[in-house]
């Protein structure tokens, strides 16, 4: 496990050594903030000192933006041949997978936390419930990890970044839509009720919702952590194949 650190460091700094990091961070913050102030977010019209109108778009934003971060993790290594270099260094597949995943996750966490001026704005305009703000940030970061786990897995399956992006987007979309009643109702028509219910439990939205209300339910935390664990396990399997 002691090789995780150098791999993490290389991958994490790798975002900042290329324009990827700056383009991503600026795009993410501009889009997320403008959505909150848009007519759909209704930040001012709501007249409430909360960040709900900011975070409500996160599951949607992540569906597009996390695949953009995750698609390069393995595809780029495979395309450029550095994967051969990496796996002939004395590291295990698990160390490489964890190092890379944690780097991507840390980067996403930074992106989420850089929205702090929004929190300051809310704090300046009113007196928000800071507990709720903190749990929402925690939920957003956990959710980013869940999305990223799915995306790294897709990235490990192909050396083509476009395919990796599209697969990730599709997988993330399914995990997102599972939470909508119209979608689950269709499922209930097709599948036994118990199975449809179980599937609906896999939605990001359902598990993120509680955080935005200030609740840290162990069930939700475990959902995101086990989703990461499971996708990373599959990631190792795919790479060792």
């Amino acid at each position: 496990m002691r090789h995780i650190a150098p791999i993490f460091k290389r991958e994490f700094l790798g975002y900042f050594r290329s324009p990827v990091a700056y383009v991503f961070l600026v795009a993410f913050l501009v889009i997320s903030v403008s959505l909150a102030f848009s007519r759909y977010g209704a930040f001012f019209r709501a007249g409430v000192a909360s960040m709900e109108s900011y975070f409500t778009f996160f599951p949607w934003l992540f569906m597009f933006l996390v695949p953009a971060v995750g698609m390069r993790l393995w595809s780029e290594e495979k395309r450029s041949g550095t994967v051969e270099l990496l796996f002939t260094l004395p590291v295990t597949t698990l160390e490489a997978v964890l190092g890379k995943f944690l780097a991507g996750w840390a980067f996403l966490a930074i992106a989420v936390l850089l929205s702090f001026p929004m929190a300051l704005t809310v704090g300046y305009l009113g007196s928000p419930d800071w507990g709720v703000v903190v749990t929402t940030y925690l939920g957003a970061i956990l959710m980013a990890g869940g999305y990223l786990g799915v995306c790294t897995l897709m990235s490990a399956m192909t050396k083509n970044q476009v395919i990796s992006f599209v697969l990730s987007l599709a997988a993330c979309a399914v995990l997102l839509f599972l939470g909508f009643s119209s979608f689950t109702e269709t499922l209930e028509g097709l599948l036994p009720l118990a199975l449809a219910d179980a599937l609906a439990n896999f939605s990001f939205i359902t598990h993120f919702d509680a955080f935005t209300k200030g609740i840290i339910d162990p069930k939700d935390v475990i959902f995101f952590l086990s989703l990461m664990g499971f996708t990373l396990f599959l990631n190792v399997v795919v790479l060792e194949r």
Binding site: G14, G81, T82, L85, P90, T92
Partner: peptide, 21 residues
């Protein structure tokens, strides 16, 4: 594999390296 990889210096074909470093 890890012990063996520690003993080997390997130059893969076309010498891949991380381009941004």
């Amino acid at each position: 594999p890890v012990a063996v990889k520690g003993k080997i210096g390997y130059l893969p074909e076309s010498a891949p390296a991380y381009p941004e470093m």
